[in-house]
Design a protein around this nucleic acid. Sequence first.
DNA 1: AAACAACACAACCGCCTTACA
DNA 2: ATGTAAGGCGGTTGTGTTGTT
Length: 316
Amino acid sequence: MGRAPCCDKANVKKGPWSPEEDAKLKAYIEEHGTGGNWIALPHKIGLKRCGKSCRLRWLNYLRPNIKHGGFTEEEDQIICSLYISIGSRWSIIAAQLPGRTDNDIKNYWNTRLKKKLLGKRRQSAQSPSLHLNQAAGEGANGVNHEAPSQTLSASALERLQLHMQFQGLYHPFSFHNHPARQPKCHPPGDPTATTLIQQVSPPKPDAGHLQEIDCSSVGFHSPSAMETSSSNLDAGLEADLQDLLYCKNSSSFVGHEEHQLANLDYYKDLYGERETANWCPCNGLEDQSSSMGSWDSASALHSDAMIQEFALRYNL
DNA sequence: AAACAACACAACCGCCTTACA
DNA sequence: ATGTAAGGCGGTTGTGTTGTT
């Protein structure tokens, strides 16, 4: 049975807010607060709006100290590194950027930052698998070449690619080029560690050696990033993935073929772990009472390639 | 100048979680 | 323990603006 709608859809106004509506909402909340009930609020002040809509309007635009646009380079870097670490958890990312809203960051990422970082992908005509997560799974000629189960989620792919760019030395946001970003990834036992993970979550007492690292920085810990098992990847998709990851920026990527293949295996292993990896609610960026979690690194870290990567990155 | 495409952003939708009776 | 309502979140869509042909 479906969930009942939060409001009477027939009697609520939709679309852009008028200045009058904004003024009403703002004035009421500034004087009385939200009253702990967004659903009832619009009725109290005579707004023909859904309570959810009021909440969104207040949180994203009307409440004090909201910043719009003008993202700084520093903010770009924070957003990028957090996106790679934790995926599209915009509320968590927004919490690290005072004055920014999750919606704002999400829009900024989707419309600008992502393009800035990833660049334009190859023209679709060159490879059907570049339509990786299109809803219909269509190839360049409009024919469905691959079943949905054989596609890689766009989100996962983006993070994959960004991760590789981070790993490479050429990218302006590289950890190597920006040691200031490295404190987010502390070696085991570092008493000075003040990572994001520790700000919001107590360390796991029995965490293993590798788990003491802020594993979220490795990425691919969110369910969204694990949407598709690459065990289903066919040879063509694998080739295309490699091509996408390496060839496009081959001039600046430091690895060679062996390394590339090892890394590909690492990601394949990681994706393949989806069904068996433990979802650990106390191993991510969230407090233990929250619903969010991360994939238990212990389950994903068995890959030699990954361990090598850890060793390489963290200088272990 | 008009038509079209691309972009940017605001808002909505629906699912999941949480609080509470 | 269970059901329900509300809050919160991420994905998606709609619409206005800007750029290009």
